[in-house]
Design a protein around this nucleic acid. Structure first.
Length: 801
DNA sequence: AGCACGCCGACT
DNA sequence: GTCGGCGTGCTC
């Protein structure tokens, strides 16, 4: 193995790596997954070893300089997953790989220097002073070095002289570890203490409590954190025993273990053994599984029942000596499932999501790498944890769009990536949902449990408890423009009986748009052209770039003051509820008012403690809320998504409605559900309410086939962004022409849509155009074209318009 | 991404 | 004749 393939932080190299030779002396040390320093042009940068090979692809490769970190940080399976992701999603290999590194490892660019710890008698005074200021153990930025040489020679020339003499070393990129391990006081028994305990010299310890402490430490056999012991033993006990020489305090590594969030735990008592029906389902999954490792779908029942299935699957998996990974779409769900798993498999469960502190994330990463856990519960980022020997991956609430979407680039589909990871591990991959995406349902045909024919869907919420309010019939005597008379009455009744209510709406802010009645002008964001919503009072807000603008009370186009709000957002809804019922507590729950997991937990707890009467918000409510105390759920405008042109919008509406009963079924309390809509007979709304998945699916899948949409085809979105609107348009037109020339000749794509201006067309002052490639293998088709870094390629885009 | 290279215009 | 502006293209 004389050569190494190394991924570098060079943007255009999609899935590509560079070849370097491994010096003979280093060949024993360099392994797959190592971070190494390599010469690159005139610089020294960090690379990641992705392959070792006996031959070179290029003529005269340069040599690896040395290791950047002692331990290799990526396993062969992780490298394979990264190769796949990099190729499939067209992300640079390096950018893909860094997601697998421990939390808190940051790459920094710039000149850094480190000394070799030796000196030379011929140095000038200034040179040796400079050398003394450079540490041996740590890379420090050259810009941080102070002082200049008054005799003329500058700091930089002194430095290059030191480098030439082999006294210091410089690099142009480092990996900086921003997270530090936590050390805490730990108590352990001294030799004296152990002997005294062994001899049973109880009276030596004088009091029973002191003896108990010594006994506990002797039984545990390793040092225990002082903070933990202080909870159970008075501090004078610790002090006395230490003073007598029985105990010893040492600063030892303390793991920042995330606490189980008991308040969000969905079930108080967990059965120790899964119900027989659950085992039956699990057995079915395992027996059908065979050795093909194809994704499977559990079209589940209640959340409680699903959890039982997961727990059974996990138990089955860890019995074979393998590890399990449970994926959830959001942090709140992670908390809940972590609680369930951690109480069942005590001490064996790790948790991982972005809501944890960096220190907690780091400690969990490290403990997982050291094989301390057998189960990992986490959000999409948990896919990149160093879990060895995976036997099972579960993806809960498969329909959740958060698996496909993230603000942070690079964007990838977590479900698809999880399937690949399962395949690489030869692990079982199980997805679960009551309202699976039509794509998943189609792709798992034959591997759905229970099989569709066996399905005995309860139509609990079909007709008896859900009411559909046709908003077209809402009369002229409206008190509220948003809340129908029926919902208003139901709310009043609910509140009078001391009940709690949740109102759902899919849009944040107070209005969908602010509109001038005189000239038809619509307020838009200055940088994005996105329609602005009214956040509160005179504040306008851009949901796209999150900038705020002040609303001037006058039309910007015709200066008329006849300005109205069209549509509704959560803020407006909250105000309406407050004006209708001034004496109650209303809480808003959406991405604006509860951005982090902490605020979400707080709202959930407050609601549970009945400190909030009505909660108003987006679908986030359904995920986090313990709805056992809710007696009324209102969906303000169920059809809000149906107006969208995106082909997945119907499905989204169905999923929203279809998941309301899911949350409530277990509880069985007297909950009424009121759905307001302008399209009361739409199949997505009726199907969602009736929980009639099969009918919805059949209709939707035939439409997808008719229009040749996924899952029958794949879509790749190619976008061009430029500050010059003309340039962006011209370039995408030119590309479109080039691609269309080969349209008929390739089997990879069947149609090209566009170019169309993106939605939104303008973002942070830059113009964007889209082109959609539709077909069996649009990615492969695109591979033949060399697109520069000005182009953005989105494989399997979440929304197409 | 960086950085060298290269081709133009403005200056000691 | 040299310095420096930025547009192009390559880096194992």
């Amino acid at each position: 193995m004389k050569y190494a393939e190394i991924a570098l932080d060079v943007p255009p190299s999609i899935g590509a790596s560079f070849t370097y030779t491994i010096p003979d002396v280093a060949s024993r040390f360099v392994r797959l997954g190592h971070l190494v320093f390599v010469p690159f042009r005139t610089r020294v940068v960090i690379g990641i070893v992705v392959a070792l090979s006996p031959c070179s692809a290029v003529a005269n490769p340069r040599a690896i300089l040395r290791l950047a970190l002692k331990a290799p940080l990526l396993s062969p399976i992780q490298l394979q997953l990264a190769f796949w992701m990099s190729r499939y999603y067209r992300i640079s290999l390096f950018r893909t790989l860094i997601q697998f590194l421990p939390p808190g490892y940051v790459f920094r660019k710039g000149k850094y220097v480190r000394s070799f710890g030796i000196t030379d008698p011929t140095l000038t005074k200034h040179q040796s002073a400079l050398l003394d200021s450079i540490p041996k153990t740590k890379w420090i930025p050259v810009v941080k070095l102070t002082g200049s040489n008054p005799e003329g020679a500058s700091l930089l020339s002194d430095l290059s002289q030191l480098k030439a003499m082999g006294l210091v070393d410089t690099v142009d990129q480092i990996v900086d570890i921003t997270v530090t391990p936590k050390f805490d006081d730990h108590l352990s028994l001294t030799q004296l203490g152990k002997e005294a305990f062994k001899k049973g010299l109880i009276d030596k310890f004088r009091t029973p409590r002191r003896f108990q402490l010594v006994q506990e430490l002797a039984l545990v056999g390793f040092p225990m954190p002082k903070s933990e012991l202080k909870v159970r033993y008075r501090s004078d006990i610790l002090k006395v025993l230490e003073a007598k020489g029985y105990l010893l305090t040492q600063k030892l590594r303390q793991n920042r273990v995330p606490a189980i969030q008991n308040d969000t735990c969905s079930m108080q008592v967990l059965p120790t053994k899964a119900s027989s029906a659950t085992w039956e389902k699990t057995e079915m999954v395992f027996s059908k599984h065979g050795n093909k490792f194809l994704p499977m779908l559990i079209k589940g029942g209640s959340p409680g029942e699903n959890r039982e299935i997961y727990l059974a699957l996990i138990a089955n998996c860890i019995a074979t000596g393998k590890k399990a990974l449970i994926l959830l779409p959001d942090t709140l769900s992670v908390d809940q499932v972590f609680c369930d798993c951690a109480t069942r498999f005590i001490g064996q469960v790790a948790v991982f999501h972005s809501g944890l502190s960096q220190g907690q994330q780091y400690d969990q990463w490290e403990e997982i790498q050291k094989n301390k856990y057998t189960v990992v519960v986490g959000s999409r980022s948990a896919l990149f944890l160093p879990i060895k020997n995976l036997g099972l991956i579960v993806c809960d609430a498969e329909h959740d769009w958060l698996y496909e979407y993230d603000d942070v680039l690079p964007s990838y589909n977590a479900k698809k990536t999880a399937a690949k990871l399962a395949e690489l591990n030869k692990a079982l991959y199980v997805m679960s949902s009551v309202t699976p995406t039509v794509e998943t349902y189609y792709e798992t045909q034959g591997r759905i449990y229970p099989p569709p024919s066996m399905e005995n869907e309860s139509k609990l919420f079909g007709s008896n408890r859900a009411e559909i309010i046709d908003m077209r019939l809402e009369g002229a005597d409206r008190i509220s423009t948003i809340i129908s008379a029926r919902l208003r009455n139901a709310l009043r009744e609910c509140l009078q009986n001391g009940g709690q209510a949740a109102l759902l709406l899919n849009r944040r802010g107070t209005a969908a748009m602010v509109y001038c009645r005189a000239c038809g002008y619509i307020f838009r964001c200055v940088t994005c052209d996105y329609v602005l919503i009214r956040q509160s009072g005179f504040q306008l807000y851009c949901n796209n770039c999150r900038s705020r603008e002040t609303y001037q009370d006058r039309c910007l186009s015709c200066s008329s003051q006849n300005i109205v709000d069209l549509g509704t957002g959560t803020e407006k809804l909250k105000q309406e509820v407050m004006s209708l019922f001034p004496e109650i507590t209303v809480m808003k729950w959406d991405k604006d008012s509860a951005p982090g997991i902490k605020t979400q937990r707080t709202i959930a707890q407050e609601f549970q403690r009945q400190k909030i009467d009505v909660v108003v918000g987006t679908q986030m409510i359904l995920k986090g809320l313990d709805v056992s105390s809710v007696s009324l759920i209102g969906v303000i405008s169920a059809d809000i998504g149906l107006q969208s042109t995106d082909f997945r919008s119907t499905e989204k509406t169905f999923q929203l409605l279809g998941n309301i009963p899911r949350q409530l079924k277990d509880i069985g309390t007297n909950i009424s559900l009121i759905i307001q809509t302008y399209q009361p007979s739409h199949y997505a709304i009726l199907g969602g309410l009736r929980k009639d998945y099969e009918s919805f699916y059949n209709r939707e899948i035939s439409d997808r086939q008719k229009f040749q949409l996924p899952p029958f085809t794949k879509i790749v979105k190619v976008s061009r962004v430029a500050t010059d609107s003309y340039l962006a348009r011209e370039e995408i037109m030119a590309l479109s022409r080039r691609l269309r020339e080969n349209l008929g000749r390739s089997r990879d794509i069947s149609s090209i849509v566009g170019p169309v201006p993106s939605h939104p067309h303008r973002f942070k002052g830059r113009y964007k155009w889209d082109l959609l490639l539709v077909g069996q293998n649009p990615n492969g088709f695109l591979h033949k074209y060399n697109l520069s870094s000005n182009w953005i390629v989105d494989v399997d885009p979440v929304s197409v318009f």
